[in-house]
Design a protein around this nucleic acid. Structure first.
Lengths: 295, 295
DNA sequence: TGTAGTACATCGAATTTTTAGATGTATCGT
DNA sequence: ACGATACATCTAAAAATTCGATGTACTACA
């Protein structure tokens, strides 16, 4: 990393205040320091950030583009330092939770609300993972708790929820016109919506047929919408399409037995550490104590 | 800003490689430099990042939490430097576009696809603004082009699209049982879904009745879902609920004339600068040349 | 139980980076 | 043309970072 946070911050100040001298005054530095910092930043990046128009320095288009992105990350580090100092002063603690996006939102927020009420000073930090991403997201987010269906490493995992997945189509889909049991070959004839992980590979839990025509989407919502459009069939969590099933808009495909799927979600934690009261309370609310519910 | 990017990067390396010495080797620094940097970072943040367990330094829970956030922003700055150097080598340029979330997605991506095909080296940077946020988002994102319905400043704006907004309910909603013309008083009796800007105030284009029971949501999708649930009525873009209207699931409220709304989206740009070919091409694709379409 | 080896901390000197103040150059308003 | 403004450059001083050496605490192994 060549550039420094200070340099970007100086750039931001110069642009906001419209000149080197005001920025210098605000940052309690000399004007030459500002000039030096800007010059250095330009040199490191290899681009001109300012263009001298008359006696004013005007941000270039390139500079505008780079600064636009830099500002959010700059704010991120400010936030980070603030948080650290809050923690330092004993102000707050946090519990980091990564949740697979297949986990029902209402359930999640209900739990989070209950938790926040019980531990008002503890900030639950949530990260909604992409669909069925494995527990390595866990380490990426450095989460303490992770709700996932795919467990690859030797971690402490407890089952909490089983989500039924069924293959459905819109009520007027041609697959429903077939009178006999639907075979794999029948499915091959039609487009299947799949939920792809933006980052890496595709979903594993969906029984994939080779050479299947696929419609990749990025969220469960989009997949439901795709099926609603009548364009394709899809393997979807039952609870997410209950309304459509009740109304008769969506119809489950009459597949041979064994063709229903389920995702077994587990709560994964780093250690079976009993010492962290807050974490254990959250785990409890998420349902580790009882038998896994089936929806 | 007290901390430096270098310090965070060192922290990251130490955690990734599991020790001071390996991190030192990787970063081409001496071990004492690493030790100094970590010590300084801890001092600046006021928290212990590592705990010495035996002769190994173990990341504390606090450290894990802070690093988790820092990593994404760190990656952001790396990305930023990379991009700057790409631009420096004449590799690429970009067009930054901010779009109100009410703008139809399919239309947007169609335009973007056509644009990318025409200018493969130009990266269109997209930002989907929140619903009906004004053009000050424009400056926040430093966008060159902005599609918005609210124009507050003296900028160069050209109308491109008119989106019809209608009040709808689910077909079994009690409001439809009223035989006479629906009055304001009738509407007051029922819950209205509103799309709130996460950042600031609420939507202005919806005729708000005082003391109306409100259900605030954050996206148009959620608002549609709320109406679909039958819980409330809502002012929604017609094009987004066409399917529901056609099927008869949603029914427009028979309001007195003048109670239909529309959002007039304009393409706003900083200057009427004719020099930027790419920007003008994108503007063209977005429909500035013809009359604004009405949907 | 002693000894070699590993891992991080600390120290002091050398180096590098950053800073301020003075000065230079170009531009603007009058 | 003049003084004022805005940024660039120069130089010396101040601050920080860096390194290698050494110190301390622990582990593993004999």
């Amino acid at each position: 990393m060549d550039t420094t946070l200070d340099a970007w911050e100086i750039l931001q100040a110069v642009v906001q205040l419209g000149g080197f001298a005001p920025a210098a005054k605000k940052l309690n530095k000399s004007q030459s320091t500002i000039s030096y910092a800007i010059g250095r930043l330009q040199e490191q990046l290899g681009v001109k950030l300012f263009e001298i128009q008359g006696r004013k320095a005007q941000l270039t288009e390139v500079g505008r583009g780079l600064l636009a992105d830099a500002e959010s990350h700059l704010a991120g580090f400010h936030e980070l330092e603030k948080r650290a100092r809050l923690i330092a002063s004993g102000g707050a603690s946090e519990v980091r939770l990564s949740v697979d996006s297949i986990y029902p939102d209402d359930r999640l927020f209900e739990v989070l609300a209950a938790f926040s009420q019980k531990f008002p000073h503890v900030k639950p930090k949530l990260r909604q993972c992409t669909f069925l991403s494995a527990d390595f997201e866990f380490s990426a987010h450095n989460a303490q708790l992770c709700i996932t269906g795919v467990i690859t490493r030797e971690l402490f995992a407890r089952p909490i929820l089983v989500i039924g997945i069924i293959a459905v189509v819109r009520r007027d889909h041609p697959l429903l016109a077939i009178r006999r049991r639907i075979s794999r070959a029948d499915l091959m004839q039609h487009t299947l919506v799949t939920i792809e992980n933006a980052a890496s590979g595709t979903l594993k839990h969906q029984p994939r047929l080779l050479a299947q025509r696929l419609l990749p989407v990025s969220t469960i919502e989009s997949a439901v919408a795709a099926v609603r459009s009548g364009l394709c069939f899809g393997w979807l969590p039952k609870y997410r399409i209950q309304a459509e099933l009740d109304k008769g808009d969506f119809v489950p495909l009459p597949l041979p037995a064994g063709q229903t799927r389920e995702v077994r979600l587990s709560l994964v934690s780093r250690e079976m550490n009993a010492s962290n009261t807050e974490m254990n309370a959250l785990a409890d609310l998420l349902g580790v104590s009882g038998d896994p519910e089936i929806i």
